[in-house]
Design a protein around this nucleic acid. Sequence first.
DNA 1: AGATATAACTAATGCGCATTAGTCAATGAT
DNA 2: ATCATTGACTAATGCGCATTAGTTATATCT
Lengths: 360, 360
Amino acid sequence: MPEKSQPPLRGGRARQADVARIAGVSQTTVSLVLGGNRQGVVIQEATQARVREAAKALGYVPDPAARRLATSQNNLLGVFSFTATFPTAMEHSYYPFLVGIEQEAAEQGYDLVLFTGSSAGGAGARRQALDRVRLADGCLILGRHLPATQLHQLIEDGFPVVHIGRSAEPDVPWVGADYVAATAEVVRHLAELGHRTILLVREDDEALPSSDRELGFRTGLAAAGLRRQPKAVFRTATPESDITADWVRAKIASGITAIVAEETDSGAVWRALVKALDEAGLRAPHDVSIALLGSPPADLAGDRIPTGFDIPRADLGAAAVRMLAAQLSGIDRPQPLVHCEFRLGMTTGVPAKADNTPAH
Amino acid sequence: MPEKSQPPLRGGRARQADVARIAGVSQTTVSLVLGGNRQGVVIQEATQARVREAAKALGYVPDPAARRLATSQNNLLGVFSFTATFPTAMEHSYYPFLVGIEQEAAEQGYDLVLFTGSSAGGAGARRQALDRVRLADGCLILGRHLPATQLHQLIEDGFPVVHIGRSAEPDVPWVGADYVAATAEVVRHLAELGHRTILLVREDDEALPSSDRELGFRTGLAAAGLRRQPKAVFRTATPESDITADWVRAKIASGITAIVAEETDSGAVWRALVKALDEAGLRAPHDVSIALLGSPPADLAGDRIPTGFDIPRADLGAAAVRMLAAQLSGIDRPQPLVHCEFRLGMTTGVPAKADNTPAH
DNA sequence: AGATATAACTAATGCGCATTAGTCAATGAT
DNA sequence: ATCATTGACTAATGCGCATTAGTTATATCT
């Protein structure tokens, strides 16, 4: 015997069919009224009202999984990081990115799915980490160490993905900070102050952020009309031992009036530089101007603000969301580079014994 | 004319049907082999191998949306806050909770859905804020100001919800910190040091966290065998103007040897107390012992550590997840109170001019 | 030899929704 | 009076998977 009249809502949740029954229409009509009805099916105002009323009364909310299955899209953006998104040590977290991501996602009408336990796979059961993101419409990827194979599989399948931070992997869409332009601007600032011999100190690895800064450095020098200097870049793998008081004195003696330091995770270069200056009894900007290509490490936050630039992490997050949203609407990728704000600190000034004529 | 042989994989992704075709079996078999086959259908080893091989060859990955639709549970826990989850000012954020939530969610095999724009409704379209959480299997609620009506609607519908922080709303499941016990412990600590006349300073509102602390305070006094003191609690709506150097001096003169301050969002009471002591030229614990019923505000983090207790926000988040998970599996709620760790700081010591005999 | 049982699968169905192809009555045109 | 149009919907179908109810061939029992 077929039972036709089921209870208003089973399993707790109302479905379109429930709404339909109450409103006295078909499930199709409910879908039409509640979904956009972009196919332009004509439905009386009165009927629509009944449907909406019933939906509200039942607290109807579309099932994202079903929607996704039917349309291949829900309103969810994934956020995937290979390490925990919220580690106990706050400093290393992706929090600053999340600020921007959340805001922009809200703006664009998306909710966020945080895929957890991506690193270790908390529960005993091994979960095919990255693949889970396919639940969402698209996904933001945070962090450096990615499973390249899985990632490319996703992209190949046409799943929208944006990596936050310039990606070395080919074919991976990304948004990153414009270190080149930002560094060039710092150099320009120094050149305008009258510096003619500027040194870049960077760590000795081939990371993209490092080489971008060096490129920006050279760009800045060229733009300022400063001729190619032979030893304009100093590389070190061990800043603590290489950058000493003596080293600084020697550099200054050799005619250098400004030193630009790369920012790294540890802030080792900057830290060593500051310490060396201190030990040499030298003051910036009086004896030498120094600048930092990024933000100072947290523990040095109390010091005088160094000239340099700030990496707009929240903006990066927002830009990533925008880019992902663009991908989702089939629009072509917007500019993936985010501008770094120049930070005029207190560590740069006119060169000590150089002529003060503005450049050019 | 029905076309039977479609291309191996359309839309970019392989489905079970594709795997089935290649392995020469039915979609059902694929599902059985690749899924757990907990229904114990017998399938030859050789067949299973063929299926697995085909799956690997095609790079088959199950569609989570479809899986969720079929099994009607999506392994998603919602996180809803009426204000932005990641406000720009990090201090006020729910970050510490998220740390625990993320970790425990991973442990339990859940992913997290962050509902964005809950406060203002970023996009023009007004979205029925709270109802969106129905998307997940259950939801954590953060923050004080909740739309009670919608919340109760959810709960009535049997939607699993846990509020983080003790809730004043009836019937709303919650996890909270055990302020009563923690405060009592602080009092016991003071009593053991020899204090006999202790003052509690609290703000003048009826918030649950405040009254819990007062309850704990009285409990602690009673447990220490200190007789009911008439003016043991001082209430103020304006700590800055009420708690002055003179006020402190007067209190001490009246025989009080220890002051316990409630922690609030702003930390106003504690701030005022510290300032007043400073202006009065008094030092803790030499002249008077002081304790803080919570963590010091971030900007006072550099000061000497005050005796008191730490609210285990991460633990609270984790406990909330556990409780929600329990609800989802139909198990009864575990203990909703989380223990606060006693913090032995440097602001409490033996009373200045009291007898040093231990209590009791 | 016929009735059961077992092994090894497969057909069919449903999850909740979106979408396409109707259906049916009421008008309007001829 | 007949055919084509609209208006206002609804029936049917499929998304990819899990699950239940079969189906067929072979071995076992009496």
